[in-house]
Design a protein around this nucleic acid. Structure first.
Lengths: 225, 225
DNA sequence: AGGCTATTTATACACTTGCACAACAAGGCC
DNA sequence: GGCCTTGTTGTGCAAGTGTATAAATAGCCT
């Protein structure tokens, strides 16, 4: 029995208008939409249709740019990690600053916006929760973490060298691990409960803790600029 | 046209045998199966059928103990948080120990098994990633975190009192926040990459960092027991 | 032993999901 | 302008989802 009802009378074949975008742009839009979806609804809520809707396209298009959903998620996570580490490292390039000032700036940068950010934390946690089962995710994290820690270790070495101290490799590594933990821990606290801390408070706590870890004498206020 | 094929010849009505368990036991089994499923396959992979299979029951039974999937997940998370904080606090009850020893024991306990555990971390990350969107989750975490930090603050106060130091409330709070961050950060590192550290190494790093934060003189080896 | 009831199984259902594919049209190329 | 490539849409489908509910049975009570 054929369908006699005609919901769209005659002018029916209205098809959605669209624009062709460059491959780079579309991929980036899709990745951004994926991260937004994951941040908002978790991995379970990030369906192809949700993502496509947010990106302003239809679901079928995703398969034109990515082999499948898993690849889209992996590329999205890689993009996220890349952006995070890039931001963190950017705080280290300060020409004409003392090692100690650079270390303090590094800590400060990592304990304020945009690195302290609830959305980024939500994404990080969601993805990292699967690192135990997903080796690709685990490796992506491991590389990012070690890169970060090496940066810390390099700055610490400079700071101590400026203080005429020459720690052995083991002590240096321990300092880097501890400082890394301080930054990570405060980062988590700030992301999860930012309103519990006054602006700049976390950075102050972090700098003090890091300098205590390195056994640096408290910095005189007048030397700081 | 009726079905003439008879796949299960006559003896068909074989139904799965089962045992009736007490309500408490079943609920606990279901929660444990839920946590296992989430840890292994993430929230998206934790389906009612998977959970039921792991618990040794059929999916329908879950609805007999929980109104829906969401309630099961929430109760599971609550159980997880409860177990974690319980473990952490248990390390603090040491009769006849000096405050400093208790603090060190607290740090040590939190940086070794069973608190350093990849499965627990995976669970924690998976759930906490949704704290930004789920207010019930966020509150559960907030309470756990503040409880933990208050414990830290209390021990820190004892330690400093034993050293004849009387910090004001603000300094005490900052110490607690920093120490909390040190423990959290090292906990994360240990859970994510435990094999990168030798046994007890994280605890050593943690104790040193905490004592540096509090400005305690390095402990003599012979005074420790 | 025999029945009662709450626990448990099994099936059904409406809905969503990721993926496949055919139709279509946007925009560069001649 | 007209064609041709390919980015894009829309539809279809099988598998899986949470939930609802009827049928069965385990184990206690008398």
């Amino acid at each position: 029995m054929p369908d006699t009802t005609d919901p769209a009378p005659m002018n029916a074949p209205s098809r959605r208008k669209f624009r062709r975008e460059g491959e780079g742009r579309r991929r980036q839009d899709l990745i951004e939409a994926t991260l937004d979806s994951v941040a908002e609804h978790g991995l379970q809520g990030a369906t192809l249709r949700t993502i496509a809707l947010r990106a302003g396209v239809t679901a079928g298009l995703i398969r034109h740019y990515f082999p499948g959903k898993e690849e889209l998620l992996q590329e999205s996570y890689t993009a996220l990690v890349g952006r995070m580490t890039e931001l963190a490292k950017a705080a280290l390039v300060m020409d004409g600053a003392s090692p100690r000032q650079r270390l303090a700036a590094f800590v400060t940068a990592n304990l304020n916006a945009p690195i302290i950010d609830a959305r980024v934390f939500s994404l990080w946690a969601t993805f990292i929760g699967r690192a135990g089962a997903d080796t690709a995710l685990a490796r992506a994290h491991r590389e990012g973490y070690l890169g970060f820690r090496n940066e810390v270790e390099a700055v610490v070495a400079e700071v101590l060298a400026a203080e005429q101290r020459k720690p052995d490799a083991g002590a240096l590594r321990h300092h880097a691990i501890a400082i890394n933990a301080i930054i990570d821990g405060l980062w988590m606290e700030g992301c999860l409960a930012g309103e519990m801390f006054s602006p700049g408070e976390l950075a102050t706590i972090g700098i003090k803790a890091v300098e205590a870890e390195l056994g640096l004498a408290p910095q005189d206020q007048f030397q700081q600029k």
